[in-house]
Computed example of a mutant assay.
Amino acid sequence: MFNLMLYVVTVLIWGTTWLAIKWQLGVVPVPVSIAWRFLLASLVLMLVLLLRREWRLPPKAAMPFVLAQGVALFCLNFLCFYHAEQTVPSGLVAVIFSLAPILNAINGKLFLKREMQPSVLVGAVVGLAGIVCLFLPEWRHWQAGMGQGVLVAALGTICFSSGNLLSSRMQGMGLTPLFTNAWAMLVGATILTVGSLLAGLSFEPEWTPRYLSALVYLAIPGSVIGFTAYLMLVGRIGPDRAAYCTLLFPVVALVASSLFEQYQWTGWTVLGLLLVVAGNLIGLANARRALWAMLTGRQLQPG
């Protein structure tokens, strides 16, 4: 049941953060908004570690992984998605992100030497077909930069997948997501802050209820709670099965996009969404059994 709680929390929070990201775009430069988000989130996590008497510097053996996770998961990943949402509806960006399970399986094969089934490649083709269907209605309203936005979102998903593997590696070293997130978020925020200052960007936030509420939501529920819950799932059941929760992100995100961004549902939208979900389920071996095991906390039996 604890796995189910982590799953639901992650889906509900991350399925709505795409819209909050959209609300941050405009006045404040993208790197500055992300820096504020993770400065605030890392501060909250550091305070939690202090209250739990668990604050300490990362072990020397884990430091390269903490630095790499900070760059991939809390810097490049979000730079990509914030920029993508400048030209692509937030719900469609979430759909691209839902290819994370397949990327996790591929990266697990490349970097962790985990077995990858041929069905992963079939699932990738089906999932990509779904994305094509989702974007077919958008061709009539295609704007300059949307193609680049799609590619940038795909790059962000690759960075997210890399961060998953790094977290799995550190949890194998006995480090909790609460601890590694606190330091990795600080690394990402520091890089973004230094880069923004060198570029001469202003750090003054937009003093509007919309921007500030989005910042708080992204920092506390979106980062502190969402990333901790998700990466706990990664440690408990592995990055492949943990990424199943991304299958429901597009549903939540597209509903939010239709309510607040006037996104129009069509037959192509429904077909594309079904293909993306089907592609992910096909792409992971024993998908239904693995999902059931994740939700119930039971161990998979061979065969």
Rank of each mutant, 00 (worst) to 15 (best):
V88A: 11
L134K: 07
V120I: 06
A105I: 10
L121E: 00
Q86Y: 01
P118V: 00
V125P: 03
S119D: 11
A105S: 08
V132N: 03
L128Q: 06
V132L: 13
F81S: 13
S90I: 12
Y82G: 05
V93T: 14
V126H: 03
F111A: 09
V125S: 04
I102N: 01
Q86A: 09
N104L: 05
Y82M: 14
V122M: 13
V126K: 06
L110C: 09
P89V: 10
L128E: 07
I102V: 10
Q117S: 15
A124I: 13
L110V: 10
Y82H: 14
L103C: 05
F111D: 02
S90P: 06
V122K: 13
K109G: 07
Q86M: 13
K113E: 01
P89K: 05
L103Q: 04
N107P: 01
C133M: 14
L79P: 07
N107E: 08
V88H: 06
P118Y: 01
L134T: 09
M116H: 04
G91N: 07
N107M: 15
G127N: 08
L99S: 10
L103E: 00
I102E: 00
V95A: 15
F97E: 00
G108I: 02
C133V: 01
G127T: 11
I96V: 14
M116S: 04
V125Q: 02
T87H: 14
P89N: 08
A94P: 01
L92V: 14
P118N: 02
V125I: 14
V126Y: 08
L134F: 05
I106K: 04
L92Q: 05
G130D: 10
C80H: 10
N104Y: 01
C133W: 09
P89G: 10
L112D: 04
V122D: 00
L92G: 09
G91Q: 08
M116W: 05
F81K: 12
K109Y: 11
L112P: 01
C133L: 14
I106R: 02
I102Q: 00
K113S: 12
G127C: 12
S90W: 06
L112G: 02
L99E: 04
G130C: 09
A100N: 05
I96S: 00
V125M: 06
L112A: 13
A129G: 15
L112C: 03
A84K: 11
C133F: 14
S98M: 05
T87I: 11
G108D: 04
L110H: 12
C133Y: 09
G108H: 02
E115K: 09
G108F: 04
L99H: 02
V125K: 03
N104A: 10
I131Y: 13
G123R: 13
E85I: 06
L110D: 07
